[in-house]
Design a protein around this nucleic acid. Structure first.
Length: 485
RNA sequence: GCUGGGGUGGCUGAAUGGUUCAGGCGGUGGGCUGCAGACUCACUCUAUAUGGGUUCAAUUCCCAUCCCCAGCUCCA
């Protein structure tokens, strides 16, 4: 089946065809590491995690590059480097700050079961390449130097603005930012900035000491690791302008090859209780805080319940709902595992045949949804229907054909895993320590004796008190089962 | 001001020029259970912002109006 994606560049759905056969080059803009990762990061990187997983599901090998920005990202108000500013506030070395938040970023994303990129290149590790590139842009006439600052001359390109569809003249009217006095043209952007004497984070360059602009790093690292042209470039939608627009300008000016990127994918923003997430509103939630309250997979399920390009609203109600629906999927998975133990090696009967066909049909619906620009809400609908179909079947059947059961189990878990779900170890039916396990078993056996005698008062009390200890007992038709809550 | 995206049931969130608008969450009732849980079935009243138009037929296409959001300035 054909995969189609929505390309921001064309504004349309397009058939996905990588530049080289079954290989996909992917670049996603990473974080500026001066603070904790927040839920907005989680949304974007979970979305791209699922995109990577789906490409792999489709048989592509994906080479995934995601940068770490550790210099050059300026604040608006004072035009200071964000990292330098925070480092001064905290009285630490800028690179110390970077190191701390970079490590914490990886920890948080690991905790969310987001697979790491193949390479996480840092801006400061690519100064030489950036300086060379800037020199080449000056040489080719696309950039100019004034007072130790180097700017990209946007007027040299006739297709500037093609990604964001921005009209340059109109853009300046409502805009409030001050134009740097050395710029020839207000829309020009900095490639290299002169450092103030007291600036800590600076490097030598042909134009004096300074530091690189923000947009040049991604252009350089993309070119270096993925080549002058590659398949997918992603990020949140706020990066479309100016960041990605400027990346295109620089890269295409430098290499002379168009297009720099074949497919541009952008994720929608995350809101908190209907409001934009912002520090000024006091509704800023870090990944770490969220993980104290909700499981990683519930957060993932919540993210996937909305299409990646749409805005998504983070509320307690929805997260609790995600937690419940996740449990539903896990219950089905466990039922399948339990039934596997009593499956039979014999010819499948008519009911089983039909069941196998239904499962195949739903699997097809899931694949179709994902192939249509990674439509995870629709894919999830198919997964839940599959769950229901399986539950219904298992409720009726005592002993199931082993081959069919195996196939159904594989399908169900494979699809869940394609979304990054079902990462949890199967609930360990161990408390820890042989004596403790044996004691649980002893209580368990005694409770069964009581139930057989009809002493429900005491057996229910045992169940209630075991629950308080985190051991959930469920009495089923096949006998009692227990698991850790 | 300019550019773009939207308004679907109690909440959320897909889809579609045409038999009953998916799925999840929540609620109510039933089944199964000694009970509970899990699972399952049914229901959740006229659910597609409003007003026009095109059409045999529109929630879907077109126009207008109202409202919301985003980008244009740092942001994932």
């Amino acid at each position: 089946m054909v995969l189609r994606v929505f390309n921001t560049m064309s504004g349309k759905m397009e058939e996905f065809k990588p530049l080289q056969d079954k290989h996909v080059g992917l670049y996603v803009c990473g974080p500026t590491v001066y603070d904790w990762a927040h839920l907005g990061h989680a949304r974007t990187y979970i979305a791209f995690d699922v995109i990577v997983r789906w490409l792999e599901f489709k048989g592509y090998s994906v080479f995934y590059v995601q940068n770490i920005t550790d210099v050059g990202h300026l604040t608006t108000d004072t035009a200071e480097d964000k990292i330098v500013k925070r480092a001064i506030e905290r009285k630490v070395e800028p690179m110390q700050l970077v190191e701390v938040y970079m490590r914490e970023y990886f920890k948080d994303l690991d905790a969310l079961d987001v697979k790491r990129p193949d390479i996480s290149p840092r801006a400061t590790g690519h100064l030489l390449e950036m300086i060379e590139a800037i020199q080449s842009l000056i040489q080719k006439g696309y950039a100019y130097e004034v007072n130790g600052n180097v700017f990209f001359d946007v007027s040299k390109l006739d297709d500037y603005g093609k990604l964001s569809k921005i009209k340059l003249d109109a853009m300046l009217e409502g805009s409030r930012f001050e134009v740097h006095q050395d710029k020839k043209n207000a829309r020009d952007f900095a490639l290299w900035k002169r450092a103030a004497p007291e600036t800590v984070l600076k490097w030598w360059s042909p134009w004096g000491t300074g530091f690189p602009g923000w947009h040049i790093e991604c252009a350089i690292m993309g070119l270096k690791y993925l080549g002058s042209q590659f398949d997918i470039h992603g990020g949140a939608r706020d990066l479309i302008f100016p960041h990605h627009e400027n990346e295109i300008a620089q890269s295409e000016a430098m290499t002379g090859k168009k297009p720099f990127v074949k497919y541009w994918l952008h994720t929608g923003f995350l809101k908190i209780n209907g409001e934009k997430m912002a520090k000024s509103l006091g509704n800023y939630i870090t990944v770490r805080e969220a993980l104290k309250k909700y499981s990683a997979e519930a957060i993932r399920l919540f993210v996937l319940s909305t299409h990646y390009r749409s805005e998504i609203d983070f509320t307690d109600e929805r997260l609790k709902g995600a937690e419940t629906s996740l449990k539903r999927l896990y219950n089905t998975l466990e039922s399948l595992e339990d039934t596997k133990k009593v499956s039979a090696k014999r010819e499948p009967n008519e009911v089983e045949q039909k069941f196998g066909e239904n499962v195949e049909k739903l699997r097809g619906e899931f694949v179709k949804a994902m192939d249509e620009d990674f439509n995870t809400p629709q894919a999830l609908a198919a997964l839940f229907e599959l769950s229901k179909e399986i539950n219904r079947f298992l409720d009726e059947q005592k002993q199931v054909n082993a081959e069919i059961l195996e196939k159904v189990y594989d399908s169900f878990s494979e699809l869940g895993k394609a979304l990054g779900l079902f990462q949890q170890e199967k609930t360990e039916k161990k408390v820890g320590g042989k004596i403790a396990d044996d004691l649980v078993q002893l209580l368990f056996d005694l409770r069964e004796e009581l139930r057989k005698k009809g002493d429900y008062g005491l057996s229910d009390e045992i169940r209630a008190r075991m629950k308080e200890l985190g051991l959930v007992i469920e009495d089923t038709a096949e006998g009692p089962k227990w698991k850790l809550a």
